[in-house]
Nucleic acid binder design. Structure first.
Lengths: 349, 349
DNA sequence: CTGTTAGCGCCTTCAG
DNA sequence: CTGAAGGCGCTAACAG
């Protein structure tokens, strides 16, 4: 009786989405009957059902998902995904993998781009938690994972992608960073290279550290020294990597080969090598489009970034399924393969 | 009194996120006081505030965003974004632009990848509407836009990106497809080319049609014929484009230049040209990483895909702001520029 | 300064 | 087969 003055006249004004009550009024039934009809509850007569459906169509009614989630006490059916930089194809592929698996389970993806800003990452995580996402997948941009602790997130299931959890007990999907780098470096050594440079991410990152470790292991195994002047590991973007490569090529005793520890560094190194017309062999972690058809032969450490996202989503799905069953943290390691593109890499000078 | 049996003992079990009542009980106040404290309402004493905050921290409480949205009758603060293929850098950049502007306004992005499947696109749109997103940005994958009509979506603001609305009145962000293609083709003509092939998307798509129109206009203007055997417009991916280019190069009177109407076709054409070592000049719509450093000189129609996403988000923001004020549909056209990479394109044979 | 009442939109439970 | 009551978590509006 004390309902807010309902929109007058026939069709609704553009004042927002219709509610179940408006449909009920239009169909001359109770809201309950509308609810039952829409949920295909058997106990509704054909005639009533028809009238309700007419009203639903006429009004363009669609149940408010947030309200029903609240009522049913269920999760929102949302997976929160926090990546560092969607412009990097690695992350957009990963996102695609998450989206695909989420869709298989009728879930949707809430996307956040941290831009490698720890504060922004934390903010996104908190916001997603407040929105009651069913689970969270994150590519952390630094080593403090305290904001990703499910214990502080109301028991929210969390899965990390790209780096292992630090002081929190959550599942993770990792690349086989060490093996990939090790094999890539061995590949160069097998080609006769002795002066092999390393272009990588900062040592503080998991990826930067593991890939450097693989590089070192291969050198050590071949009784080759790790020389400081061949190691550049501060640059995260393509432009600085290009500059670093120029300096490497200008060395009095320049490297005959370069191992770039991620696609940004590979691209930068490629540009510099091509500009100089150098014969330096180039191998890089991460495959990317056109890597096979550049002006310089390239060998890459390849893997399926989409599969990483899919694997993360599956780990999350398991946790969401049995929320109660405390299971030990799991790890999925995505394998890497060495792919040699173009003509055989040039022999060392 | 008839509250559900509360979790026994001290700290909460891992049964989900705590509610405001649990915090209230812990702090020995009413839920209202907790609510006020968290919303920085001035009318709370320092002592009470402290007790409440202690409880909040102890329990890791975070207000349920869905519940408060429901109560306040506000929008969810979510922007729904439906793209066709996130693996294409064009769309991931666009997504980044949307995300950035959304963030500026405290909103988040709900992401859906349609995979160019009309049914999936429709499903995503309906689902997002049911989740009460504040607005929707879509890159439609076909010409039937009926499912994107705000009239059928409870007045939900909608913005299209990439192609103009068909039979619905919504805002759109478009590229200057015609001008870009026209200029690119003129550029080739100015270089002396007379046999210029067109590699494009199907004629049924807006983009495919407009870019072909630009190509035709430039030829016409130069009194050159549009020859069927130089026009391939069925291929949407790089592999078919590569094959099409092979056939073009095998023609008895092969083109001296190719205009590829999108990055997929450009990549395919590039591969074929490089493989054959052909001197065919290549120009393509869409800029992409490494376009400047390939083995074949390339000219591209460049623009800011991120700005497209940002512009779409801004149009949406305006609509969300004044939901009532019915304003005529607007269009933002993103300009394109011709960028010539590498050495001057080879003179025609 | 704090608490009570009521209700956002929906659906489970129980009556008719 | 249909309706009425009640409450999910939260917060305006109104007491006290």
């Amino acid at each position: 009786m004390t309902l807010a003055p309902p929109p007058a006249g026939g069709s609704r004004p553009g004042s927002g989405a219709p509610t179940i009550r408006e449909v009920a009024r239009q169909a001359q039934v109770s809201p309950m009957t509308v609810s039952r009809t829409l949920r295909d509850d058997p106990g509704v007569s054909a005639a009533t059902r028809a009238r309700v459906m007419d009203a639903v169509l006429a009004l363009g009614y669609r149940p408010n998902e947030a309200a029903r989630t609240l009522r049913l006490g269920r999760s929102s059916g949302l997976i929160g995904l926090v990546v560092t930089n969607l412009a990097n194809p690695f992350y957009s592929q990963l996102t695609l993998g998450v989206e695909a698996v989420a869709t298989e389970h009728g879930m949707r993806v809430l996307l956040g781009n941290s831009g490698s800003d720890p504060a922004r990452e934390r903010q996104l995580v908190h916001d997603f938690a407040a929105r009651r996402v069913a689970g969270l997948i994150a590519v952390p941009c630094h080593n403090d994972h305290s904001h990703l602790d499910p214990g502080r997130l109301g028991g929210l299931p969390v899965v990390l992608a790209g780096s292992p959890p630090v002081k929190i007990g959550v599942d993770a999907v990792l690349l086989d960073d060490f093996t990939g780098s090790w094999e890539a470096t061995r590949h160069l050594i097998a080609r006769g290279h002795r002066r092999i440079a390393f272009l990588g991410l900062p040592a503080s990152t998991w990826t930067g550290s593991e890939r450097f470790r693989g590089y070192c292991a291969a050198l050590e195994e071949a009784a080759l020294p790790v020389e400081d002047r061949y190691v550049w590991r501060r640059q995260a973007g393509a432009a600085p990597a290009q500059q670093a490569t120029r300096e490497l090529l200008d060395d009095s005793d320049p490297p005959t080969a370069i191992f770039a520890a991620n696609n940004r560094n590979t691209v930068g190194a490629y540009r510099a090598i091509r500009q100089r017309g150098a014969a330096t062999a180039l191998t890089g972690f991460d495959d990317f489009e056109l890597a096979d058809a550049l002006a310089v032969p390239l060998t890459v450490v390849a893997y399926e970034p989409r599969e990483m996202g899919a694997a993360a989503a599956r780990l999350l799905r398991d946790r969401i399924g049995n929320a109660g069953a405390a299971q030990a943290p799991r790890r999925v390691v995505i394998p890497t393969t060495i792919v040699e593109y173009g003509a055989a890499a040039g022999e060392p000078a």
